[in-house]
Simulated assay, not measured.
Amino acid sequence: MRPLRYAINVTLDGCVHHEAGLPPDEESMRFWTAELERADALLFGRVTYGMMEAAWRRPATGVWPEWMDASQLPFAEAIDTAKKHVVSSTLSGVDWNAELLRGDLRQAVERLRKEPGEGLFVGGVTLPLALADLGLIDEYVFVVQPVLAGHGPTLLAGLRERIRLELVERAEFRSGVMALRFRPTAEHHAVVGGASPS
């Protein structure tokens, strides 16, 4: 089964607004590019899909905009060409190498996870909360910014039940940013699966 990985920037006080952290540098762009390249497909909700498309879709001219520097081009190429699945009940259609996911969220995502491949990447705020509540996220990647934002939205706010995680990898960037990779513990999987933990 393909693992579903959730990755997001988060400030020290839990803010996940896309502009709350440090401006991306070369090291962080390399990290995010590698995360995208580990995935066979990306999973977004309507809002995140719209934001990503506005920022990272290759213009019709085929030429990337002048504001994009050399460190951002590999990320732009990776996200532009990636297969995308968009969860939305309000959009009538999507393009940008994307397809709509409709109906029961658990069934739709479990179907994607059963397809062969290396993994799925989910980004955003609202959709990952729903997926975490359903016990469908296999890996959490929190890119912790050395910033206090003083405002929200905050990481997985409204989660119905506590999720126990174990740290499996840590990387520190020169900027002071830390990338922390976690997986739900066996105890958590046992509870979500309906069995009681030993």
Rank of each mutant, 00 (worst) to 15 (best):
G93K: 07
S198E: 15
R57F: 04
Q145C: 00
D138C: 04
E118H: 13
E66Y: 02
S198D: 12
I8N: 06
K83P: 14
A190E: 13
E26H: 09
L148M: 14
L42D: 02
V125C: 09
E19D: 15
V109Y: 13
G103K: 01
A130P: 05
V86G: 10
A190D: 08
F75L: 07
M178D: 02
R106S: 05
S175F: 10
A76V: 11
F142I: 04
D69T: 10
S89N: 15
G117R: 09
P65Q: 04
A98E: 07
A60N: 02
G117C: 14
E187I: 09
L4K: 15
M68E: 00
W32C: 06
A55C: 03
R106W: 06
P23D: 02
S196C: 11
L12E: 01
L159G: 12
V86T: 09
A190W: 00
L136Y: 08
R170H: 03
M51S: 08
T11M: 04
A39S: 10
S88W: 05
G45I: 01
E115W: 10
P59Y: 00
H85W: 15
R57N: 01
A132I: 10
L167T: 13
K84D: 07
P3G: 05
R2Y: 10
R30L: 08
P65Y: 04
V94I: 11
P184A: 11
L4F: 15
G45M: 03
E166R: 13
A132S: 12
